[in-house]
Structures are given as C-alpha cells and as structure tokens.
Design a binder for these strands. Structure first.
Lengths: 347, 347
DNA sequence: GAGTAGAGTGCAATCGATTACACTCCGTGC
DNA sequence: GCACGGAGTGTAATCGATTGCACTCTACTC
C-alpha cells in the first residue's frame, strides 16, 4: 500500500475530538474530572484512530521506562527460564516489563547487555550471573539505577544480593550421602568464575569434616556446569579406576551428564555409585534414575528480585541498605542415591 | 548521596566541550568531517561525563527502536531458548535487540505482549506461538510493522511464515516405525490450538495409509504438549490394556512423559514399546533410553526469522510478498525405537 | 451585584536526541 | 576585488507524550 503507515499520535486524537492534547492525556490517564461529553469524544477518537500511546515518547518525558533489565548466565539452562518466568510475572502485575539478556557464559556478552540496558534507561537491573568482571561489579554498585544480584556474590562490593544458601544446601546433600554410609566421594565442580561453586564445595567439605572424613578422601574434579563437563569428569574418573561410592555435582545438568557416563560404563546407580545434583530443574525428575538434588527456589527468587527493585525504586536513593538475602534450599531425595556399596568398584 | 543522579545528556557534553549539541551528535555518529580538535574535545567531554546517549530519546526522534519483539509459546520448553538464543545472536550482530515475551500457553498473555510490543514501537515482531486468536492474526497481518510467524500457520491470513515441515517430519518418523515392523501404534496429540498438531498427525496418518495400515489401527490420544500429558496418556492407555507396539508423540516433552509412565509400568522401551518424539531438545539425549526424535532446526529458524525481518525492513512496505518457508526436519534415531515386539502386551 | 471558589481546559515548556538549513570563514580563480 | 565553493558549526524544529500554570465559566455567598 502506501508508505509504512505512521501510527496515530495524541495530536491526531486531539484534533479529531476537538480538544487539546492535554485533555486527551488526562482523559486517558484518568486524572482531573473531564466532562462526560469530552471524555466520550476523546474515547471515540481513540477508538476510531486505533490510537496507542507511544511508550517511547512517554518514557522520555517521564524519565522512566517501566522496564527492568535481567541478565542470566545461560538461558539454555532450564534453571533460568523458571526464574525469568516468575520475575516477568511479578513485573507484569505492576506494569513493568523485562528486557532479557543471556550472557551465554561470555563476559563480553554480559557487558554488552549491561551497556544496552543502561542505554535503554531501564529502571532497574537484575544480574543473575557471575560472569561479570570486578570492574563491572563496581560500575553496577555505583550505578544510579537499582541493582539486584541473584545467585552470585561479588566480593567486597556493597550491593543487594539474593542467593540460594548454597553452602547449607550442599552441606545437607553431603550429610544425606554420609548418612547412607558413603565415605569416599567425588565432587564435580563448576568452572572458575561461577561464584556459587565456592560455597557449594565448602558446604560439602564442611559436612565431610564434621563426619570425620579426611579431606584426602574427597576427590574434587573439574567441570563446566554443563552436561559435557559432568560426562567427561566421570569418564576420566572411571578410566583411572576409582573407589568412590558417591558423586556430588555442582548442578543438575552436570549430574545428568555424570549419570549418562555412568550408564555408558554400565555402573549401576545408585547400587554402585550414588549421584546428587543441585538446582532441581524439571529434567531432574525425567532422567533415569531420577535425580536426588538440592532444590533452589527459582521462582521465589525471581519474584523477590523484582519486589526488591520496586522497593528500592520507591524508597529513592539511599532508602534501602544493600543486604544479602539467603534463600533456603531443600533436599529432594529421588532414585539416584542409596546406601553405599559394600565393596569397591574395580573395573 | 544526592537525589538519583540524572545521567548526563548531550547538552552537558556540548557545554563542556564548548560546541553545539549538533556537533556532539555528529562526532559520535561519525558523520561530517569535524576538525580533529573539535572531535577531541567532544570525546574528552564524553569520557569525563561518562556520557551514554539515551536510546529512548534517539528512538523517539528516529522513529525506530532497533528492537524486535519475540513471542514464544512457553519459554520453559527447552525448544524455545535455543531459538531465542539464535535470534538474539543474529539481531545483536546488526545492532538490534530482542524484547521477549512468553505466552505461557495463555492467549491473554499473548495479547498482552502483542500490545506491549506495539506500544513499545518495536521495529518488527516474531510470533513463535499459535496461541493467538484469529482476530489477533488479522491485526498482525494488517499491522504496519513487519511480522514473521514461526512454527504456526494462521489459516487464510497473508503473512510471512517460517515453519518446520511438520508433515514431512512426522511422516518420516512414521516410516521409521513402520520399517521396524510396527503396525498397531498410538499417537499422543497436542492440545487444540497448537497449529503444528495438525500437520504432524496428518503426516503420521499419511505414512500409515501409504503402508496399508488401516486408520482404525492408529490410536489417537489427547495430550497437552507437556510432560504431564504424555504421562497421563500412557497411563490411560495401559490401564485399558493395549496391543500397540509404538507410540509417537507431538513433541519431546510429551515423549519423555510417556517414557516415564512406561517405566513406572515396567514396560521395556524399545523391546516392548517404541517411542518417538519431535523437536530434539537437549533432554532427548539425556533420558534413558535416549529418545528417537524428529529434529527441528531451532537455531536456524530463529536466525531466518531475524534475517527476514531485516529484509522486510529495508525493502519497505510491499517490497516482500508474504511467503511460507518450510524448514526440513531430520530423524534422529536413538535408543527408544526398535523392532516391533513379536506378540502383544497384555497386562 | 461584586467577589470568590472550583471545575474544566488549553498553552506551552519539557524530556534528549537528530538533522535540515543557514551561516561564517577561508582559499581560489579570474 | 569579487564571486564562488566547500569545510565546519550552530540554530532551531522535530519526534510524541506529560503537566505546571493560566485562563474561562458557572455557581454561590453575603
């Protein structure tokens, strides 16, 4: 047809209704008490022209975008969609929307999104990744826009943090294994830079220490927080022969990779080796055997992050002190853990 | 500290550099040939003030937001993050970003996002869901902004569509099963309203017809495109006793639900019953037995959608005719399918 | 009947960028 | 000496909304 039809503006509506733009704006915002007649004319014009106020123009004038930025480590990890969904719900309920960015394990991409969101003048940011440089953390902490960090703990930067109690969670998982009689265990870690890695391994070690298990009996294996990392760690472990009877993993995806490798090697789970994960993603109950894991309150954290941002917004600057909130985790016992095998596995 | 510090504006920069805002704008955009001295002063001021141009103001003036809206059926289905990731990559490369909305199987939410994106004046929209009313499809088709529909086929609306060749894909899956000797089969469908449902079941039926299998031998079961639907369908199927030797499912999540129910009932897969899914999500190769499935080119489709939008944008209105592009699917044979059992299952 | 209050609107500035147009120099050509 | 052209900048309009302030009426008080 014609050129790309320009959407109608408030001026078009005003003209058609025979009033000023100020009146149109007021009628639509429901402020002032317009005469029923005026209001009617405005609404009719809005209807006729299929008018939709431009959020862009409004944002410029109001100096608010009604948008929160949300950066996650990797949207492909099912852990995040659940969190994102909950955050989006909470935001939508109060008229905000979420601008999403997935860092995809790449610090440059994280920075890209940080910049993007700053340029877009989001009203607040949720940073749910630890793939962020120290420099960026400081920039965030100094930023005039409210920031909430989820599941990461930037050291020595005063900033609001909402995180699962990773230390206590993995402590519980270790106790569970120890209670089942496991003494020689392996732990598959995340890659460096993922801040949840440290508290989790520490919780695990602490529980072992408390049970009198020598640190040397705990094998720490490198991983990458992905399926491949879990798989490879187990392949290597078995290749060199091992007597561990349990494997704890940084997260569920790693654990599922581990399960896969154990199955390929015909090691029975949990009869020969028990496996526990962390996160409680949907797939944890899909796999065979279903995965014992430490559940994070994903949705709850997403919701909390948004609520916190809103609170910071209407408290204004300096209204709310940075604070670290620890959300409890809960052990989900499924099929992948059982009593320690009597004898060692040699193969 | 003070009030929420307002970010510095182009005027602040101009003042500090001792030039006009026009010059600042030109220097930053790299147009005109500013004297080296002027350019230097501008850059210095930008640096000193930590100036970032407001994308909001720019969008208003340019009447372009450099943003594409993307609506998916359900971000929790791993199928979508892969597509979204690819779309985001493609968009970022050319300076665009993606505003994401998950309809979460709710038509009202889909409409909400449609409105939101229209208000935000996105430069184009990707609609990767069929949870959209006829009215909305027409609205989209008439919309002045470019729209690409992914994996849905609004009937009788002239609009650009990129979709997997669902019919051919499921036809192939059926042939695979038939080739393995299966004759009595079940098919777990999606809920009504999911447009991929129809071509898939049709492809399945067609392959059976071609093989001379009477339609009555194909059991069509209701599902919901979710884990629960697959699980329930199989539970019901087994409860009433059945002689099927293979189950095809609308998608992988459904198939994984079916696997779970079969396992609970101690039916061996594939020895007693074969299962195939559709999508090829990551979890398809995680489950046990790993899932034979028909793979969609998720990333490719996300990329294509963005490219198409860009093409529509610089072709201007009417430059590109609506067209339906079918992306081929590929059978991924894994462990969940095998030769048909000799005898029926009675339990 | 003058004064006042308040309801209902309009005028115009503003948010922060981009860009058409006008203007000032300065060097050249003749 | 004057016209001309181009390089380099500045002035001001514009994008589409919101909102403080001023204004016009009407109704009411005394």
């Amino acid at each position: 047809m014609s050129e790309r039809a320009a959407p109608s503006t408030i001026r078009d509506v005003a003209k058609r209704a025979g009033v000023s733009t100020a009146t149109v704006s007021r009628v639509l915002a429901g402020i002032g008490n317009p005469k029923a007649e005026t209001a009617g004319a405005v609404m009719a014009a809005v209807e006729a022209l299929d008018y939709r106020p431009s959020a862009v123009a409004r944002s410029l004038r109001m100096r608010r975008t009604n948008t929160f930025g949300l950066i996650v480590t990797d949207i492909q990890n099912p852990f995040f969609p659940e969190m994102v969904g909950a955050a989006d719900d909470a935001a939508r309920k109060v008229g905000y929307s979420i601008l999403l960015g997935s860092a995809a394990f790449d610090e440059h991409r994280a920075v890209h999104y940080l910049d993007l969101m700053a340029d877009r003048r989001v009203d607040g940011m949720i940073v749910a990744t630890s793939q962020v440089s120290d420099e960026s953390w400081h920039w965030l902490a100094d930023s005039p826009v409210p920031v909430v960090v989820v599941n990461a703990e930037p050291a020595s930067v005063p900033i609001t943090v909402i995180t699962s109690d990773n230390r206590a969670g993995m402590h519980t998982a270790a106790e569970h294994l120890i209670g089942l009689g496991h003494r020689r265990m392996a732990y598959i870690r995340a890659a460096g830079g993922i801040t949840a890695d440290l508290p989790r391994i520490e919780g695990f070690r602490a529980a072992c220490r408390d049970a009198g298990i020598p640190a040397a009996d705990i094998l720490e294996l490198p991983g990458d927080a992905l399926f491949e990392g879990g798989e490879k760690a187990v392949v290597d472990l078995l290749a060199q022969g091992t007597d561990v009877t349990a494997i704890a993993c940084h997260n569920d995806i790693t654990a599922i990779g581990a399960l896969r490798a154990l199955r390929s090697a015909h090691v029975r789970v949990p009869q020969e080796i028990s496996v526990v994960g962390c996160d409680d993603i949907a797939a944890a109950s899909w796999v065979v055997p279903s995965l014992t894991t430490v559940a994070q309150q994903k949705a709850e954290m997403g919701r909390m992050a948004v609520e916190r941002l809103l609170a910071m917004l209407d408290a204004g600057e300096g209204g709310i002190e940075p604070e670290t909130i620890r959300v409890p985790m809960a052990l989900q016992i499924r099929e992948s853990t059982g009593p320690a095998a009597a004898g060692d596995i040699k193969r």
